[in-house]
Amino acid sequence: MGKTWRTAAAVVPLAGVAVWAAWHRDLLAAGGRDLLAADRAWLLAALAATALGWVAVAVARQGTVLEPLPAGRLLATQFAATAANQLTPAGIGAGAVNLRFLRGCGLPLARTSAALALYSLAESVGRVTLLAAMLLAFPHALRVHGLVPDRGTLEVAAVALALAVAAAAGTVLAVGPLRRLAGGFLATALADARSLHLRPARALALWGGSLAFPALQAAGLVAVAHALALPVPPAHVAIAYLAATCLAAGIPTPGGVGSVDAALGLALVAAGAPAGAATSAVLGYRIITAWLPLLPAALTLGALVRRRVV
């Protein structure tokens, strides 16, 4: 029974990739045509930045636990998580793959969950910090007039978000089992975070990797923009990427398809790119960073499942 389950689990990512590719075949074809006419050297640079991004994620994941993790399997897991992420919203797929990996390394569930939460927090802080620093250096990079909601809409959204957070917190506090579960999780997470930050190597891995990952992703978009001769300064392209991904994080879709694409397109237009050129850059970037690695990532995920790594 266990062997049958693992065989089925190894096939699921490939089936998901096939369905996804069939569903998005028109987008893939359009982006592929644009890339055929692009500068190959810059496209290779974008591929290199993407590959280094998986290394950065692996380093950051190591920084979330005190125990040394097997480096090769850790890196392979981050690459495999690319396939899982394309089929689930809000990074749930990557979280599930890493949960299985850490559990397989012998970490208890409470500490594994704390490690996943710490990574998500550090990655978000790193992305927002980079965006804030670049906006301070280039305050006029984005011309957002007409591209963002008016003040009244933003205030209503802020109130709705505050009410949702308050309702969730009230539910947790009101229900005894949830309160005890949340309390135990927070105690474990805080204890682990404190221990990790007493180890300079772990703290450097966590925050260095969390800053390097979005920086490398932004560099990949800059390289694609160069390949397609997009008439926008590199720093402005990087800011557009960071702003778009921060915005799209609030609209979880499988693999970011739709939310990330739309946000990237709008951000590039706000940075000064013509709408048609911005669309080509977004399609080219998504092909290189997400769609091209999808099949090998799914094969890797299947192999890791069969070998009981995840």
Rank of each mutant, 00 (worst) to 15 (best):
residue 28 L to H: 06
residue 29 A to G: 01
residue 110 A to T: 08
residue 144 V to N: 06
residue 59 V to R: 06
residue 63 G to P: 08
residue 43 L to Q: 12
residue 211 L to S: 11
residue 169 A to N: 03
residue 283 L to R: 05
residue 299 L to F: 03
residue 286 R to I: 05
residue 231 P to N: 12
residue 217 Q to G: 12
residue 180 R to I: 00
residue 139 P to Q: 07
residue 88 T to M: 15
residue 204 L to V: 14
residue 290 A to V: 13
residue 301 L to C: 02
residue 10 A to G: 08
residue 234 P to W: 08
residue 124 S to F: 14
residue 34 D to R: 14
residue 279 T to Q: 12
residue 3 K to L: 14
residue 196 L to H: 10
residue 160 A to G: 13
residue 11 V to W: 08
residue 33 R to V: 15
residue 193 A to Q: 11
residue 41 A to I: 07
residue 197 H to E: 15
residue 135 L to C: 12
residue 70 P to C: 04
residue 123 E to K: 14
residue 235 A to T: 10
residue 164 A to D: 07
residue 301 L to W: 13
residue 121 L to P: 11
residue 141 A to V: 11
residue 244 A to T: 06
residue 7 T to I: 10
residue 259 S to T: 03
residue 161 L to Q: 11
residue 115 A to H: 11
residue 181 L to C: 03
residue 59 V to S: 01
residue 163 L to M: 12
residue 69 L to Y: 05
residue 90 A to V: 00
residue 268 L to K: 00
residue 85 N to I: 04
residue 215 A to I: 05
residue 138 F to L: 05
residue 111 R to T: 01
residue 262 A to D: 00
residue 193 A to Y: 15
residue 96 A to D: 09
residue 71 A to Q: 05
residue 52 L to D: 04
residue 228 L to E: 05
residue 272 G to V: 06
residue 17 V to S: 08
residue 129 T to Q: 04
residue 252 P to F: 02
residue 263 A to K: 06
residue 137 A to V: 11
residue 149 P to N: 07
residue 145 H to E: 15
residue 173 L to I: 01
residue 46 A to C: 00
residue 248 A to T: 04
residue 148 V to A: 12
residue 297 A to L: 10
residue 196 L to G: 07
residue 118 L to P: 06
residue 112 T to H: 01
residue 293 P to G: 02
residue 69 L to I: 11
residue 5 W to M: 10
residue 40 R to F: 10
residue 181 L to I: 01
residue 48 A to G: 09
residue 229 A to H: 12
residue 291 W to E: 02
residue 250 G to K: 01
residue 275 A to K: 13
residue 196 L to P: 11
residue 192 D to A: 15
residue 204 L to T: 13
residue 34 D to C: 09
residue 11 V to C: 11
residue 174 A to F: 07
residue 230 L to C: 03
residue 226 H to L: 15
residue 123 E to H: 15
residue 187 A to T: 10
residue 116 L to S: 08
residue 169 A to F: 02
residue 255 G to W: 03
residue 301 L to H: 10
residue 208 G to T: 06
residue 184 G to N: 07
residue 187 A to F: 00
residue 292 L to Q: 09
residue 49 A to C: 09
residue 6 R to H: 11
residue 254 P to F: 05
residue 119 Y to G: 11
residue 30 A to L: 09
residue 26 D to G: 06
residue 201 A to N: 12
residue 257 V to T: 12
residue 219 A to Q: 03
residue 118 L to R: 14
residue 197 H to T: 13
residue 62 Q to L: 06
residue 282 V to W: 05
residue 244 A to P: 00
residue 289 T to K: 03
residue 34 D to M: 05
residue 38 A to M: 13
residue 141 A to D: 12
residue 91 G to T: 07
residue 160 A to K: 10
residue 259 S to C: 00
residue 281 A to Y: 08
residue 87 L to Q: 07
residue 273 A to Y: 01
residue 139 P to Y: 02
residue 148 V to I: 14
residue 46 A to D: 01
residue 151 R to W: 15
residue 2 G to A: 09
residue 296 P to D: 08
residue 202 R to N: 13
residue 244 A to L: 01
residue 99 L to Y: 15
residue 124 S to H: 10
residue 278 A to L: 00
residue 140 H to G: 08
residue 89 P to S: 07
residue 48 A to R: 02
residue 141 A to W: 09
residue 123 E to M: 11
residue 174 A to D: 04
residue 310 V to Y: 05
residue 133 A to F: 05
residue 236 H to I: 01
residue 3 K to P: 03
residue 98 N to H: 06
